[in-house]
Protein backbone atom coordinates (compact mmCIF):
# COMPACT_ATOMS: atom_id res chain seq x y z
CA UNK A 1 0.00 0.00 0.00
CA UNK A 2 1.28 3.43 -0.88
CA UNK A 3 0.01 6.63 0.55
CA UNK A 4 1.02 10.14 -0.35
CA UNK A 5 2.57 11.09 2.97
CA UNK A 6 4.40 7.84 3.60
CA UNK A 7 8.05 8.06 4.56
CA UNK A 8 9.83 6.76 1.45
CA UNK A 9 12.19 4.54 3.42
CA UNK A 10 9.31 2.76 5.09
CA UNK A 11 7.81 1.78 1.81
CA UNK A 12 8.08 -1.63 0.35
CA UNK A 13 8.92 -2.32 -3.22
CA UNK A 14 6.28 -2.60 -5.90
CA UNK A 15 5.88 -6.21 -7.03
CA UNK A 16 6.66 -6.30 -10.76
CA UNK A 17 4.11 -7.67 -13.23
CA UNK A 18 3.98 -11.39 -14.04
CA UNK A 19 6.29 -11.55 -17.08
CA UNK A 20 8.96 -9.52 -15.27
CA UNK A 21 8.79 -11.89 -12.28
CA UNK A 22 8.96 -14.97 -14.48
CA UNK A 23 11.98 -13.57 -16.30
CA UNK A 24 13.67 -12.84 -13.00
CA UNK A 25 12.82 -16.34 -11.75
CA UNK A 26 14.25 -17.97 -14.84
CA UNK A 27 17.36 -15.83 -14.80
CA UNK A 28 18.11 -16.44 -11.12
CA UNK A 29 17.63 -20.20 -11.51
CA UNK A 30 19.88 -20.43 -14.55
CA UNK A 31 22.56 -18.24 -12.95
CA UNK A 32 22.43 -20.26 -9.72
CA UNK A 33 22.91 -23.49 -11.64
CA UNK A 34 25.85 -22.02 -13.47
CA UNK A 35 24.10 -22.37 -16.82
CA UNK A 36 24.43 -18.71 -17.76
CA UNK A 37 27.07 -16.18 -16.74
CA UNK A 38 25.41 -13.16 -15.08
CA UNK A 39 28.19 -10.86 -16.28
CA UNK A 40 27.64 -11.83 -19.89
CA UNK A 41 23.89 -11.26 -19.43
CA UNK A 42 24.44 -7.82 -17.90
CA UNK A 43 26.85 -6.82 -20.63
CA UNK A 44 24.36 -7.86 -23.27
CA UNK A 45 21.52 -5.93 -21.64
CA UNK A 46 23.78 -2.90 -21.17
CA UNK A 47 24.56 -2.96 -24.86
CA UNK A 48 20.86 -2.38 -25.46
CA UNK A 49 20.38 0.05 -22.60
CA UNK A 50 19.58 2.88 -24.96
CA UNK A 51 17.22 0.76 -26.98
CA UNK A 52 14.73 0.46 -24.18
CA UNK A 53 12.33 3.24 -23.60
CA UNK A 54 14.26 6.50 -24.21
CA UNK A 55 12.56 6.76 -27.56
CA UNK A 56 9.24 6.84 -25.71
CA UNK A 57 10.37 9.77 -23.58
CA UNK A 58 11.84 11.54 -26.60
CA UNK A 59 8.51 11.31 -28.41
CA UNK A 60 6.70 12.70 -25.40
CA UNK A 61 9.12 15.65 -25.25
CA UNK A 62 8.97 16.32 -28.99
CA UNK A 63 5.16 16.34 -28.86
CA UNK A 64 5.22 19.06 -26.19
CA UNK A 65 7.40 21.19 -28.46
CA UNK A 66 4.95 21.13 -31.34
CA UNK A 67 1.66 20.93 -29.45
CA UNK A 68 1.12 23.50 -26.69
CA UNK A 69 -2.11 21.86 -25.52
CA UNK A 70 -0.32 18.54 -25.12
CA UNK A 71 2.41 20.28 -23.14
CA UNK A 72 -0.19 21.63 -20.74
CA UNK A 73 -1.76 18.19 -20.33
CA UNK A 74 1.62 16.58 -19.75
CA UNK A 75 2.55 19.04 -17.02
CA UNK A 76 -0.88 18.74 -15.39
CA UNK A 77 -1.51 14.99 -15.59
CA UNK A 78 1.69 13.33 -16.82
CA UNK A 79 0.56 9.71 -16.57
CA UNK A 80 -2.50 10.26 -18.73
CA UNK A 81 -0.64 12.40 -21.27
CA UNK A 82 2.08 9.77 -21.63
CA UNK A 83 -0.58 7.07 -22.03
CA UNK A 84 -2.11 9.19 -24.83
CA UNK A 85 0.93 8.37 -26.94
CA UNK A 86 0.36 4.69 -26.29
CA UNK A 87 3.02 4.24 -23.62
CA UNK A 88 2.31 2.40 -20.43
CA UNK A 89 2.05 4.25 -17.20
CA UNK A 90 4.46 3.31 -14.46
CA UNK A 91 3.66 0.52 -12.03
CA UNK A 92 1.66 2.58 -9.62
CA UNK A 93 4.23 5.32 -9.17
CA UNK A 94 3.25 8.90 -9.68
CA UNK A 95 4.97 10.59 -12.60
CA UNK A 96 5.96 14.24 -12.31
CA UNK A 97 7.23 16.25 -15.26
CA UNK A 98 9.53 19.15 -14.42
CA UNK A 99 10.08 21.81 -17.01
CA UNK A 100 13.38 23.46 -17.88
CA UNK A 101 13.24 27.14 -18.76
CA UNK A 102 15.77 29.88 -19.43
CA UNK A 103 15.91 30.48 -15.67
CA UNK A 104 15.37 27.01 -14.17
CA UNK A 105 17.24 23.80 -14.79
CA UNK A 106 16.04 20.49 -13.33
CA UNK A 107 18.12 17.46 -12.44
CA UNK A 108 16.81 14.06 -11.36
CA UNK A 109 18.48 11.64 -8.97
CA UNK A 110 17.46 8.81 -6.67
CA UNK A 111 19.63 9.17 -3.59
CA UNK A 112 18.27 5.99 -2.01
CA UNK A 113 18.68 3.55 -4.85
CA UNK A 114 17.93 3.87 -8.52
CA UNK A 115 14.25 4.73 -8.93
CA UNK A 116 13.79 5.69 -12.52
CA UNK A 117 10.86 6.32 -14.87
CA UNK A 118 11.73 3.37 -17.09
CA UNK A 119 8.50 3.26 -19.11
CA UNK A 120 9.65 6.53 -20.64
CA UNK A 121 13.40 6.35 -20.16
CA UNK A 122 14.24 2.66 -20.26
CA UNK A 123 16.93 1.13 -18.09
CA UNK A 124 18.84 3.53 -15.88
CA UNK A 125 22.39 4.14 -17.10
CA UNK A 126 25.14 2.69 -14.91
CA UNK A 127 26.26 6.13 -13.68
CA UNK A 128 22.72 6.95 -12.50
CA UNK A 129 22.89 3.98 -10.13
CA UNK A 130 26.41 4.80 -8.93
CA UNK A 131 27.06 6.08 -5.41
CA UNK A 132 29.04 9.15 -6.60
CA UNK A 133 26.17 10.39 -8.77
CA UNK A 134 23.58 9.69 -6.11
CA UNK A 135 25.40 11.74 -3.52
CA UNK A 136 27.04 14.40 -5.66
CA UNK A 137 23.91 15.28 -7.66
CA UNK A 138 22.52 16.74 -4.45
CA UNK A 139 25.69 18.28 -2.98
CA UNK A 140 27.21 19.63 -6.18
CA UNK A 141 24.73 19.47 -9.07
CA UNK A 142 26.59 22.09 -11.13
CA UNK A 143 29.81 20.13 -10.80
CA UNK A 144 28.08 16.94 -11.94
CA UNK A 145 26.57 18.69 -14.95
CA UNK A 146 29.93 20.21 -15.80
CA UNK A 147 31.32 16.68 -16.08
CA UNK A 148 28.62 15.98 -18.63
CA UNK A 149 29.75 19.11 -20.49
CA UNK A 150 26.94 21.36 -19.31
CA UNK A 151 27.98 24.75 -17.95
CA UNK A 152 25.00 26.64 -16.55
CA UNK A 153 24.98 30.40 -16.14
CA UNK A 154 25.16 31.60 -12.52
CA UNK A 155 21.69 33.11 -12.64
CA UNK A 156 20.04 29.82 -13.63
CA UNK A 157 18.38 28.17 -10.67
CA UNK A 158 19.15 24.45 -10.31
CA UNK A 159 16.43 22.23 -8.87
CA UNK A 160 17.35 18.69 -7.88
CA UNK A 161 14.54 16.17 -7.63
CA UNK A 162 15.00 13.07 -5.51
CA UNK A 163 12.93 10.15 -6.78
CA UNK A 164 11.08 7.94 -4.32
CA UNK A 165 9.11 4.71 -4.47
CA UNK A 166 6.03 6.73 -5.42
CA UNK A 167 7.34 9.63 -7.44
CA UNK A 168 9.36 9.44 -10.62
CA UNK A 169 10.50 12.57 -12.40
CA UNK A 170 10.95 13.33 -16.05
CA UNK A 171 12.76 16.49 -17.11
CA UNK A 172 11.13 18.36 -19.97
CA UNK A 173 14.08 19.97 -21.77
CA UNK A 174 13.85 23.25 -23.66
CA UNK A 175 13.40 23.14 -27.39
CA UNK A 176 16.75 24.05 -28.91
CA UNK A 177 17.12 27.21 -30.96
CA UNK A 178 17.24 26.78 -34.72
CA UNK A 179 14.71 23.95 -34.86
CA UNK A 180 11.62 26.07 -35.61
CA UNK A 181 10.96 24.36 -38.92
CA UNK A 182 11.72 20.83 -37.74
CA UNK A 183 9.12 18.08 -37.76
CA UNK A 184 8.07 16.29 -34.60
CA UNK A 185 9.96 13.21 -35.72
CA UNK A 186 13.16 15.15 -36.37
CA UNK A 187 12.82 16.80 -32.98
CA UNK A 188 12.32 13.47 -31.21
CA UNK A 189 15.60 12.24 -32.67
CA UNK A 190 17.40 15.09 -30.87
CA UNK A 191 16.11 14.28 -27.40
CA UNK A 192 18.60 12.15 -25.51
CA UNK A 193 18.01 10.10 -22.40
CA UNK A 194 20.52 12.23 -20.51
CA UNK A 195 18.62 15.41 -21.36
CA UNK A 196 15.50 13.92 -19.75
CA UNK A 197 17.47 13.16 -16.58
CA UNK A 198 18.74 16.72 -16.73
CA UNK A 199 22.50 16.24 -16.96
CA UNK A 200 22.63 17.80 -20.42
CA UNK A 201 20.55 20.13 -22.57
CA UNK A 202 19.18 19.35 -26.00
CA UNK A 203 20.94 21.11 -28.85
CA UNK A 204 20.17 21.09 -32.55
CA UNK A 205 23.29 19.01 -33.03
CA UNK A 206 22.98 16.68 -30.05
CA UNK A 207 21.57 13.69 -31.90
CA UNK A 208 19.37 11.11 -30.25
CA UNK A 209 22.05 8.57 -29.44
CA UNK A 210 21.47 8.70 -25.71
Amino acid sequence: MHTQDHEPDHDHQVVPPDPALRTKALESLLVEKGIVDPKALDALVDAYENKIGPRNGARVVARTWVDAAYRKRLLAVPGAAIAELGYEETQGEHMVVVENTAKVHNLVVCTLCSCYPWPVLGLPPVWYKSAPYRSRAVIDPRGVMREFGLELAEDVEVRVWDSTAEIRYLVLPERPAGTETWTEEELAALVSRDSMIGVVKVSATSGGKA
Binding site: K24, I35, V36, D37, K51, L123
Partner: peptide, 21 residues
Protein backbone atom coordinates in the same frame (compact mmCIF):
# COMPACT_ATOMS: atom_id res chain seq x y z
CA UNK B 1 18.16 -0.13 -37.85
CA UNK B 2 20.35 -0.52 -34.80
CA UNK B 3 18.89 -3.85 -33.67
CA UNK B 4 16.11 -5.06 -31.40
CA UNK B 5 14.01 -2.62 -29.38
CA UNK B 6 12.35 -3.28 -26.04
CA UNK B 7 9.42 -1.68 -24.29
CA UNK B 8 10.39 -2.79 -20.78
CA UNK B 9 13.59 -3.93 -19.05
CA UNK B 10 12.42 -7.52 -18.52
CA UNK B 11 12.10 -7.90 -22.27
CA UNK B 12 15.79 -7.13 -22.72
CA UNK B 13 16.53 -9.57 -19.89
CA UNK B 14 14.50 -12.32 -21.59
CA UNK B 15 16.14 -11.49 -24.90
CA UNK B 16 19.62 -11.74 -23.35
CA UNK B 17 18.80 -15.09 -21.70
CA UNK B 18 17.85 -16.70 -25.01
CA UNK B 19 20.91 -15.26 -26.74
CA UNK B 20 23.29 -16.45 -24.01
CA UNK B 21 21.75 -19.92 -23.68
Amino acid sequence: QGGPVFAEPWQAQAFALAVRL
